[in-house]
Design a protein around this nucleic acid. Structure first.
Lengths: 150, 150
DNA sequence: ACCTAATGATGAGGAACCTCACAATGAGGA
DNA sequence: TCCTCATTGTGAGGTTCCTCATCATTAGGT
């Protein structure tokens, strides 16, 4: 415990949690009707309003191709609409529908509940600590990468 | 910063990093010849010796079906072998080959380098803190779930 | 011995990511 | 104008995960 903590050991611990945590959150949200991936998209649309897929890809840190696919599904389920952009005939504007907004709300409730279960075991000070550490990592990540971060 | 840190906010930060971090590590390792997923399997085999797929699934926290698929690939590339279990005709024993061991070594080097880049920005005390927090989360996770954790 | 239940692996099918290649469009310079 | 280059979205194809159904085998009770 008080041994020297190598980056590799830290990474090991992180990666072990990684998989489990993602699955737990995704499962909880899927049960509520929206997978984590879909919710991520809808959250952005809710926060920033309608936008084209390229912008969405930038915000999410996804490849454009991945956005196409996710939107395909969301459109099929009528949670978003894809309309032409009058100013640029290449681009399609994605917008939340009313059902999309409803679904998002339900999913976010489930999400919060799951987050409480997972991160509620830490006290507020510990959570602040954790977030500070993660942000430090994120900041120094942004250097050599795609730079989409947030 | 000194605001109250809610579980949801902490989770938000965690999930944002999640995707990026996974991709960075996976890409680095893939460039070195072994994807993260494949390396995970090979690491377990290296650490625990030959075993059947169910055991492997338990150790990894994967669904058995996922192990079958990953092993298919590894076997195709001759990094592992699948042999009959003389004591149980349902089961197949997975074992590392020499090439598998070599590939793993190369991949682990790449992995370490990437971990250094990511977690090296924290000092040892911070890393210890991070690991402690993650372990706290993991411990309390094990209650309601598959219980494969490590 | 037999019948039932648990277990090991896999087929089928799906979701969420990716890269690479490409058509259509837009934008800017010569 | 026209030529080139960047950008938007998507087809094609791959990987890594999943669940659910199924088959073969083993194990356990009676």
């Amino acid at each position: 415990m008080s041994e020297v903590m190598s980056p590799v050991e830290a990474g090991q611990t992180y990666l072990e949690l990684h998989h489990q945590l993602h699955r737990i959150v995704d499962q909880a949200m899927s049960s509520a009707g929206l997978s984590l991936a879909r919710a991520k998209v809808l959250m952005r649309l809710d926060a920033h309003g309608p936008m084209n897929q390229a912008t969405l890809a930038g915000l999410l840190g996804f490849a454009p191709r991945s956005v196409t696919e996710t939107i395909d599904g969301l459109e099929r389920d009528e949670l978003v609409t894809r309309t032409e952009d009058p100013h640029d005939r290449r681009s399609r504007i994605i917008a939340l529908t009313a059902s999309g907004r409803d679904a998002l709300q339900v999913a976010m409730t489930a999400r919060s509940k799951t987050m409480d279960e997972i991160f509620g075991v830490l006290d507020p000070t510990e959570r602040a600590q954790l977030v500070a550490l993660l942000k430090t990592i994120r900041e120094n990540l942004a250097q050599g990468d795609t730079g989409c971060g947030n």
